[in-house]
Design a protein around this nucleic acid. Structure first.
Lengths: 341, 341
DNA sequence: CAAATCAATGATAACGTTATCAATTAATCA
DNA sequence: TGATTAATTGATAACGTTATCATTGATTTG
């Protein structure tokens, strides 16, 4: 077992000093080396099979070239695209990406923050597990939040404009003639869903209508997508048995919307002829349902890319940083689950 | 800006040597230190706010405590659970996980292998992008493959027994009385789908039946889940317009199965009364379709956990390693899309 | 109680890179 | 040409940890 080659070996091989060899071989190109010596070094390195020891370089530079993504759960269909968007951007810039799931558990999340500090990540992109997440553990690590909440006014953040998005959905239903719209919302640890009622009643007021009675189906939005779906199904069943049918449902995310759709189908309610349903997010499952689910799409890969860019900027010039907050628009995707009354 | 504390600072603070401080503070507990000095060190470390420099330790030990996962595409619904399974196991053992997507592109995959060597990952778990993937770039890096193909006999691998899984699905349909079963398969870069025909005809022979004419719907299984779905839809449309209806479809994965289901729904074909459909994999979308898709589930989080365990074993004792090949059973999940003829 | 053994601690050398400054060589200009 | 400046290259010191061996202190044993 022959030992791994170092720049010293290369130096010996080509008869130059360790320093010049290093100059040729280390990343930065902004150094003066003669073309001839550069070639001498390169061929010698090639010949003896030199490979840069990244661990040594990282140590010397005290940077890991790694950024961390902290999210609740990768199996939640909302996140993979987001992560892909981050990864693509980061790879282009030469960073590796470590992805950590906290299972919506604040204590695991805190461990992860500690881990990031320990392991010297250069930065982090964080989707907070709950509204009270404490970022003080992260001292020294630049980070960007994935949120549209105004709870985190002091931090950099990227998110979708969900309020506007909800209005887009309601407007869509309204334009199809729907006046009796019901709301299907899930309470979560992350944010109080009460703003949805505000938007809803505001919308009705603007249209000169009165908010219908029993317009609300609420359910626990759970850790696990499957469980959320089942919860939503249950709430839908109860609602349908106790209330007169609305003409449309707005679901605060696609999983809830799909639950409503499945229950409606099972009850022989024709979607969209008797009932329109629109969701929010734009996950894959909404494309393959029957009928395909209309939705207000959040461009998750764009969120990922932008948050990555902001983090990179912050890493590169941490001085005089002014907090950036980005809210991206949502986009209506009309599919088969919505139609005229 | 005060500099970060080192073990030397701690040593000064508590009046002990650097070496003893290191003994107390470094991970391994199997070293002899008096309880009293241990406390002295700990409180001194606490007091001055010492934090271990992981980068330095990694360099010294020449190990990154990082393993890499190489997969085609995280947005493919097959992978997130798999990754979660790996992550959980690896976190327990103190490893971080870097996840790389190659977009089914062999050249990106190769870059990723090179990157792994460069960056000194301790090991890798790889879902090959295509059947001809070349692992020679990875010299020195222990790795485990995620595959059930026998193309890779020389490597460690973990996968599901898809052949047995397909038989389970066919058996299920058969037991419901189906005799005219059609096959919906997607060709991919990873493996030749011809073994599916073999299993199919073998099954029919065993049952003393003759393989029905025009039993095959084939389509391109694409890089992108959405595209695959649309491809499969198209193939289904064509098949239905040109052939007599079978009583059941076996789809080689859930995405194809969902396409068949959606098209059937659109054509007013009652599933499962007029047509049964069964898929394979057990992705989330199959739970939320209407009717919910029966499937043969691959326990992806288990595959992840087991592959992680094998990799860990291999990292710990690379000597006298005998290649391990694990094939996990698939499990029938009966849902609404299959029923008696 | 001295000798031998064992446990605990100390001194110090790596690990391979980058960065600083000194030394050399090449290029420019009067 | 000789002096001055600019462009290359060389020598060497870090970075903070772990590991090796030497040393000291504590404990046992004949």
């Amino acid at each position: 077992m022959n030992k791994r080659k170092t720049i010293i070996d290369v130096a010996k091989e080509c008869g130059l000093s360790q320093a010049t060899v290093a100059r040729v071989l280390n990343g930065q190109q902004d150094i003066q080396v003669k073309e001839k010596t550069r070639k001498r070094v390169m061929s010698a390195a090639q010949k003896i099979g030199y490979r840069r020891n990244t661990l040594a370089a990282n140590f010397r530079l005290q940077q890991s070239n790694t950024i961390a993504i902290s999210i609740p759960d990768i199996t939640n269909p909302f996140f993979p695209e987001l992560i892909k968007g981050i990864q693509e951007k980061m790879r282009d810039e030469g960073y590796s990406v470590i992805q950590l799931n906290n299972e919506w558990n604040p204590s695991i999340e805190k461990d992860h923050f500690q881990y990031m500090v320990q392991t010297c990540v250069d930065g982090a992109i964080i989707s907070p597990s709950h509204s009270g997440t404490d970022f003080s553990t992260l001292e020294g690590v630049p980070f960007v939040l994935l949120t549209n909440s105004d709870l985190y006014s002091e931090y950099d953040s990227v998110g979708n404009n969900s309020k506007a998005g909800m209005r887009i959905a309601l407007e869509h239903l309204y334009s199809l003639g729907h006046r009796k719209i019901a709301l299907l919302v899930g309470g979560s640890m992350r944010s109080d869903p009460s703003w949805r009622y505000d938007i809803f009643s505001e919308f009705y007021r603007e249209k000169g209508l009165t908010v219908p009675a029993n317009f609300l189906v609420s359910c626990d939005y759970n850790v696990d997508s499957t469980l959320s779906f089942l919860q939503a199904r249950k709430s839908m069943e109860i609602f349908l048995s106790e209330n007169p049918m609305p003409t449309a449902f707005f679901a605060s995310n696609d999983i809830l919307g799909l639950a409503a759709l499945q229950v409606a189908n099972e009850h022989g309610i024709k979607v969209p002829d008797q009932l329109s349903i629109i969701g929010m997010d734009g996950i894959f499952s909404g494309e393959v349902s029957y009928p395909a689910l209309s939705t207000v799409k959040k461009n998750r890969s764009e969120i990922g890319g932008i948050s990555a860019q902001i983090l990179l900027d912050k890493i590169k010039k941490p001085k005089d940083w002014s907090t950036k907050k980005v809210l991206l628009p949502c986009k209506l995707i009309e599919r088969g689950s919505t139609g005229p009354v």
